[in-house]
Design a binder for these strands. Structure first.
Lengths: 336, 336
DNA sequence: CTGAAAGCGCTAACAA
DNA sequence: TTGTTAGCGCTTTCAG
């Protein structure tokens, strides 16, 4: 059923039908005729054809590294909420941590198919930046900061600094660090700097060999903790770049009978659900992932409506959540 | 930049360009000319215009109740993996548990915009069914069984039966149940029937008042457990329809000093990550959510390629994972 | 306010 | 193999 056919059934002209579904410069009579015909036929105009004429798809491309990661899912929920309310739909690409797919998806989105793009970013290569520069649709980056682009990011440095300080203020003297690749400027570099500066500002010398670099998974956290805790001299607190890594480290401690927090304190960033239920529960920094999605969507909408060429960076702050893994004394006082 | 303009630059005809991007019935000379021009201009054909001609969008609509739920995320990952490999992209709608949005999304997808639809279903109303019947594009339902439609579902009944039996075989005599609305035929009705039949088959009379209906969240699991455990006569095992509910119930027990599994055994369905790290860890049935997404995508592709009008139902089996919450004796033997 | 007609960017049938 | 030409279904002038 196309517009001509439908117009014939309704007894009006094609243009009248088109107007009905668009601006609506139409008399009541025609309007009623058309409505009646819609009830009969169930006609609805072809979105593809409309997109082809208008050059507006009402689609936003969303590129994410891993859908089953809690932070990603939350951010996408936020994006979906805002964009959905404005009549946009999401074209979702799950790269499954294959960063080359980020590039190819960006290229796919570059000149057509979508009206805008939101990229949940991890690592930026030269290629990323060159493709991003060529984007012809508004684009927002979430989770990383890249000068000259719209960004919504988290205060990674601050969170790491605060959590490390928390442990040192509680009397830890020999801190260690398990981080992720420094290629990841946010989760890698910024969190490491936050840790290191907190240590330095507390007048402590970071011991050589007390800095590890893990993958983004639990097994790796386990291994790195094993390495840190195998020497003669052992750290009395560990700051981990992610909850997942911390959970792996805790798993090692539990196995070896190393008491948390008595023998060693542990904290990390992310506030994942599991950290609330692990034993001990995990001291962490909550990042407002859903909010970051919401803000990214709003930034994009702004650009879509009045693309003023000005790029904006928005940094969301964290909330420290202290739980058992750094809590001396009243262990029963578990926070959820 | 449109095809005519580009054809002029490349020094070939429009059709040659079109052929280059499609079947490729083309001489090497032309091919090279076009490739050179692409490098110069970065031209790529408009997907919208192509969709408008072809009536093929290479888009599949995916409707899900809650993206941040582990099971959903995993299923979508599976879908994305298979469909992505075939050049399809996902149009994702997150209904945020608002079931009326399922209807409106289905209607949106009904006649255009997407080539096919995958619905992660929860509850079927009359309206759902009537809209589903009117779908003009291939549709696959995941997580529920609905006669006359393509379905990929889980063995809810069997999992509930198996877990309940496991607890009764270990000596529990007085089982209780915390389920969800029976409107949800899979997670609600089938799991409840699995529980009840296992109880009956063990020659046990289910005590009046030992059947509760909760929401899909932890707080509700907590409340229902409180209710079950407040009477004079207390159950010695609880089967919960979902891990989330079980975690809530465990939280109540922990607070009241009720020992799991010594005083009461608990098991549930889902194998969520948290259940692996909770204390005690949770005995559960693993459902292959990602596989269900993969199979749904494959079913859809089959229909897309040679829509033979035959509807298929695929039921995936479960794997029982026994952990501490039903494990007497060697409590240290924690399974991850 | 309305309908006819031109045109969006692309594909496909056709004749060469 | 190629270019010309006639569409796809819709929107948008442009007269009236």
């Amino acid at each position: 059923m196309n517009i001509s056919e439908f117009a014939k059934i309704a007894g009006v002209s094609k243009s009248a039908v088109s107007r009905y579904f668009n601006d609506g410069y139409l008399s009541e009579d025609k309007r009623e005729l058309i409505e009646k015909a819609i009830k009969q036929t169930g006609y609805s105009p072809s979105i593809s054809a409309r997109a082809s004429k208008n050059r507006v798809t009402k689609l936003v491309g969303v590129i994410i590294p891993k859908l089953s990661s809690e932070s990603c899912a939350r951010a996408v929920e936020g994006i979906s909420e805002i964009l959905g309310a404005e009549g946009y739909e999401l074209l979702l690409v799950n790269t499954a941590n294959d960063y080359s797919r980020e590039i190819s998806s960006l290229e796919l989105f570059r000149s057509n198919r979508v009206d805008g793009v939101i990229l949940l970013a991890t690592v930026f290569t030269e290629l990323h930046i060159s493709v991003l520069k060529k984007m012809r649709v508004p684009t927002v980056i979430v989770g990383q900061e890249l000068h000259g682009f719209n960004c919504v990011c988290h205060n990674d440095y601050g969170a790491a600094y605060a959590l490390t300080s928390l442990m040192l203020d509680k009397g830890a003297k020999d801190p260690a660090f398990i981080g992720v690749t420094l290629d990841d400027l946010a989760a890698g570099k910024a969190r490491r700097e936050g840790f290191e500066n907190a240590v330095r500002d507390h007048g402590i010398n970071l011991r050589h060999g007390f800095t590890e670099t893990a993958q983004f998974d639990m097994a790796s956290g386990y291994d790195k903790a094993a390495h840190l805790l195998s020497g003669r001299i052992k750290p009395d607190c560990i700051f981990c770049a992610t909850d997942t890594i911390a959970l792996g480290a805790m798993s090692f401690c539990r196995e070896k009978g190393i008491a948390i927090p008595e023998d060693i304190m542990i904290s990390s960033v992310g506030d994942s659900k599991i950290g609330r239920f692990s034993v001990p529960s995990l001291t962490t920094a909550h990042f407002h992932y859903k909010t970051s999605g919401i803000n990214a969507a709003e930034l994009l909408l702004h650009d879509l409506k009045h693309g003023d060429g000005v790029t904006r960076t928005m940094r969301l702050d964290y909330t420290v959540i202290e739980r058992e893994s750094t809590l001396f004394g009243d262990i029963d006082q578990k926070q959820m």
